[in-house]
């Protein structure tokens, strides 16, 4: 039993070990996910106008201890980022069908 506790303590203390216990729905994780998707959309040249602002606001809220508000903002940023990436991928394949004809 002591060995198990020591091993678990070690895992928490070593760099990266804490990730094993990270809650994917935690505020900082949501912000990181939103930022990663925002960057993906930006690389595809389809970033939306407000996504970065939402992420900044989510970070500020988290710093102030307003976890609920931070999660709400980060979730919206994450949704925007995902939709922007989906939009980019769809348009890459289908933009020619968007040409209006008369």
């Amino acid at each position: 039993m002591k060995k198990v506790i020591s091993l678990l303590s070690l895992l928490v203390l070593i760099p990266g070990g804490s990730l094993l216990f990270a809650d994917p729905s935690s505020s900082s994780s949501l912000i990181d996910q939103a930022e990663a998707v925002r960057k993906e959309a930006a690389a595809l040249e389809y970033e939306w106008r407000d996504t970065a602002k939402l992420i900044s606001s989510a970070k500020e809220s988290l710093e102030k201890g307003q976890k609920e508000e931070s999660d709400k903002l980060a979730s919206e940023a994450l949704r925007q980022g995902r939709e922007a990436v989906a939009q980019a991928k769809f348009m890459e394949k289908n933009w020619q069908s968007m040409i209006p004809r008369k």
Binding site: Y46, W48, A88, M91, M98, P100
Partner: peptide, 16 residues
């Protein structure tokens, strides 16, 4: 492609 592809929150294009 930029002109015809829809983008942004409102899913609109220059052509739209």
């Amino acid at each position: 492609q930029f002109f015809y592809a829809k983008r942004g929150q409102f899913n609109m294009s220059c052509a739209g």
